[in-house]
Design a protein around this nucleic acid. Structure first.
Length: 428
RNA sequence: GGAGAGGUGGCUGAGUGGUCGAAAGCGUCGGUUUGCUAAACCGAUGUACGGGUCAAACUGUACCGCGGGUUCGAAUCCCGCCCUCUCCGCCA
């Protein structure tokens, strides 16, 4: 959420930002409701004050008749307070509903545009796009030949969008996790394995909606829990309601979790194979920083994503996400799109990671603050997240880029120690 | 899952209906003393939101795990939930 006061003092800016992001919100209505809310708040406080004074005087009054009279007065004031409070609650709810819809501000350098067509390519990876002297297969065909993924059984056991990894795909998943974690620990990240479920209010704080027809989230019946869509939820939630010291920051976590997504409304799009699935394993980076440090941290996270994929020898490009494609919480976002030779007609880029600076937008909802020595009060931390490795999509990129004419797959050098082999080939 | 105990400020810990935003101690910060250190002594020391101010001072409301309820008045009484600890059961 944005700061209420900030919105009121910068209405035009906020409106323009909503327009840039393709978000339709009635900011004026919000401002009007806020005026009303403030007035009611002042009324309630005034009534409370009077009622408190009356209550205190009762304890001191000795004459029983006098006490009864004041009790009556107190009752009257409390009734009035209650009435105003109800009004206030109603206005607050209305105001909050709009407030929640207002997206974060956007970085001045983020390309302006209402959808991903305006995304701007910023970098390319070190690895050139491979040229095959044969018709490259896609990962589904390769997996079939090498007995690595069982989609059929996934459908039978759980449903469409689920799969079993088998044989070398399992080794690959484990190796990728190890590779990512090793790399990040060396960079000062604290490794974490997180719960795969979280309370709904944590999901909401991070910016997900557990309910509703559009939801990406599986919720567990009869509880207030949902399966997480990303470890961003649990890692961010770890610090909810905490006040940190500025010298503890930045805090850098890398979390391993499973991610669950309903992908509601995604039917009809390219859903073949592992690309869009309901469950996958992901190593996620998450950082809490001071307000001053978050832009630099975003660069660091982006740099680490590049390092990881350069290390894997996967060709990619980095895209600066357009305002309309940022989602609610992000101030700026970079997507890393890996080259996938089996995608589309002659290969296409497909998103494999994404890193965002959410500034204080999530922290305000989750109430994560920090104190600066010598400063009164506290500020909201800035939160950032970034994918290190989303295993399912990384597997696609590896299988398709490293495939050989004979249908085998060369193992990226950095994974060989963990895989214990340098080639994945069909069993004789 | 069952039984019991408990959740109070940065920490320890008092407080069972009124002047309690909350004793005391510790810690922290400032000062006095001191050649330095230590000790002693004096003083200050919660947060959020609002009013006020150039900024302060000052001031209002709320906050004793969370949410409701009773009452003129709740840290204190009642209900629900969450969490922690102990014991039992179950289990990887």
């Amino acid at each position: 959420m944005l700061d209420r006061k900030f919105i009121l003092e910068n209405i035009e800016l906020v409106k323009q930002n909503c327009a840039n992001r393709g978000v339709r919100v009635d900011v004026d209505a919000f401002a009007a409701l806020e005026e009303k809310r403030k007035a009611l708040q002042a009324d309630v406080e005034k009534l409370n004050r009077d009622a408190n004074l009356v209550s205190k005087s009762i304890g001191q009054a000795k004459d029983p008749a006098e006490r009864d009279a004041r009790k009556e007065e107190g009752r009257r004031l409390r009734d009035q307070t209650q009435e105003r409070q109800n009004e206030l609650a109603a206005v607050e709810e209305e105001s909050l509903a709009i407030h929640r819809m207002i997206p974060n501000l956007s970085h001045p350098d983020a390309p302006i545009g209402v959808d991903d067509k305006s995304n701007l390519e910023r970098f390319r990876g070190k690895t050139p796009i491979p040229h095959f002297d044969f018709k490259p297969l896609d990962h589904v065909e390769l997996a079939e030949k090498l007995d690595m993924i069982d989609f059929e059984a996934g459908g039978r056991v759980t449903g469409h969008g689920f799969y079993f990894l088998k044989n070398d795909a399992v080794l690959l998943e484990l190796a990728l996790q190890q590779y990512a974690i090793n790399t990040l620990v060396a960079e000062g990240f604290t490794p974490i394995t997180t719960p795969d479920l979280a309370r709904n209010d944590v999901l909401v704080g991070i910016g997900f909606s557990p309910r509703g027809p559009e939801t990406q989230i599986y919720s567990v019946d009869g509880t207030d829990l949902s399966l997480i869509a990303t470890a961003e939820i649990t890692l961010g939630g770890m610090m909810a309601e905490q006040t940190l010291e500025s010298d503890q920051l930045p805090i850098k976590y890398c979390g391993i979790s499973h991610c669950f997504r309903t992908e509601a409304g995604a039917h009809g799009k390219a859903t073949r194979g592992l690309y869009r699935v309901h469950q996958f394993t992901k190593i996620e980076m998450f950082a809490f920083t001071t307000a001053e440090e978050s832009n630099i941290m975003l660069e660091q996270l982006r740099g680490l994503e590049c390092k990881l994929f350069d290390g894997l020898g996967i060709p990619y490009r980095v895209v600066d996400t357009a305002t309309g494609d940022l989602g609610g919480p992000a101030y700026r976002k970079f997507d890393l799109e890996a080259w996938m030779p089996g995608r589309g007609e002659n290969g296409e880029y497909g998103e494999v990671t994404s890193t965002s600076n959410c500034t204080d937008y999530q922290a305000r909802r989750l109430n994560i603050r920090y104190r600066v020595k010598g400063e009164k009060g506290s500020r909201f931390v800035h939160t950032l997240n970034g994918t290190a490795i989303a295993v399912s999509r990384a597997i696609i990129a590896i299988m398709e880029n490293y495939q050989q004419a004979d249908g085998s797959i060369v193992v990226p050098e950095v994974l060989r120690p963990m895989m214990g082999k340098s080639v994945i080939e069909a069993k004789r």
